[in-house]
Design a protein around this nucleic acid. Structure first.
Length: 299
DNA sequence: AACCTTCCCAACCGCCGTCAT
DNA sequence: TATGACGGCGGTTGGGAAGGT
């Protein structure tokens, strides 16, 4: 009854029926038998481009979405589970600092990893690795009040990983406090490529290198600009972000929206909003967001 | 040994974009 | 152009495992 009512509410609220009859599908962990069935079916027939119909055809009492998830995150060939390397960490942190929690994009840079995997890794481990980077709220101050140097704890100097992570992520922190020169988080293609060594895909010059150099501005922050920024000079800082992955990337095709983010007069407003969003979704910063969210201080 | 807390990750939920009709 | 179906994604949660007291 609860489920039925929930479905009714969903239809009323969204105008959409649920993707499956939730009463008649199995939920929870997948059994080895179910895995085998799904794998066997997809190996034989492929997904057929229709996940909703797949479970019935495969003889599974599962929601199509659940099958899709199980396949993509676990059963699909070449899935890599287990330890993330330092290099993985760097890539994840750098991209997170640049694009936020776009896990699928980040996953595209790490062959064999799934977005879910990376998301979990970030939420449970990587974030904690970075926690010592911000040892006290007082250390995060707008650049005009302090320097990037002063916000680096001694701990960082002793850990190459941590310092490289810091160099990737600190610009975002600093940016959040300065809110200038930041144009937009929207991405569109440019022709300038910055490669990640060892990865098939390219990170094309980033608008968030404006993150990086904006941070580096007044405070010797150049030292903080990591491997990621190599080869991207100041002039490119206003360029935009894109990822190519052999095929067209939908995010790369995002064009300036009609929301005014690209309109000069709204630049700062939009930046502040976007910065807030980035911060508010980044729980590593959440302990300190009260500070960041104080608009008066960012002015 | 028993209990409690924290960690971890697979799975779910709901929103949004795309595409076919 | 409007609408519905579906896929894709990011955020959240449930529960087992591991660690601590």
């Amino acid at each position: 009854t609860i489920l039925k009512n929930k479905q009714k509410v969903e239809i009323i609220k969204t105008g959409r029926a649920p993707c499956c009859d939730k009463e008649n599908v199995k939920r929870g962990p997948w059994s080895p038998e179910e895995d085998a069935k799904l794998k066997e079916y997809i190996d034989k027939y492929g997904t057929g481009g229709n996940w909703i119909a797949l479970p019935q055809k495969a003889g599974l009492r599962r929601c199509g979405k659940s099958c899709r998830l199980r396949w993509l995150n676990y059963l699909r060939p070449n899935i890599k589970h287990g330890e993330f390397s330092d290099e993985d960490d760097k890539v994840i942190c750098s991209l997170y600092a640049k694009i936020g929690s776009r896990w699928s994009i980040i996953a595209a840079q790490l062959p064999g990893r799934t977005g879910n995997d990376i998301k979990n890794y970030w939420n449970t481990k990587l974030k904690k690795k970075l926690m010592p980077l911000v040892s006290s709220p007082q250390q995060i101050r707008p650049i005009h009040q302090t320097t990037c140097h002063s916000s680096i704890s001694p701990l960082q100097a002793n850990s190459s990983l941590v310092s490289s992570l810091y160099s990737s992520i600190s610009p975002a922190l600093s940016l959040a406090t300065t809110a200038h020169k930041y144009t937009s988080s929207h991405f569109y293609p440019t022709s300038t490529a910055t490669n990640f060594p060892g990865y098939e895909t390219n990170i094309i010059s980033t608008q968030s290198s404006s993150f990086l150099s904006t941070c580096s501005c007044s405070s010797g922050g150049e030292k903080l600009v990591s491997y990621l920024n190599d080869g991207v000079d100041e002039k490119q800082n206003s360029s935009k972000f894109s990822i190519t992955n052999g095929s067209t990337n939908k995010y790369a095709e995002e064009k300036p929206s009609g929301k005014g983010c690209y309109e000069e007069e709204n630049q700062l407003e939009c930046s502040l909003e976007e910065i807030k969003q980035l911060i508010s979704t980044t729980s590593i910063y959440n302990n300190y967001t009260n500070f960041f969210l104080d608009e008066n201080r960012t002015e």
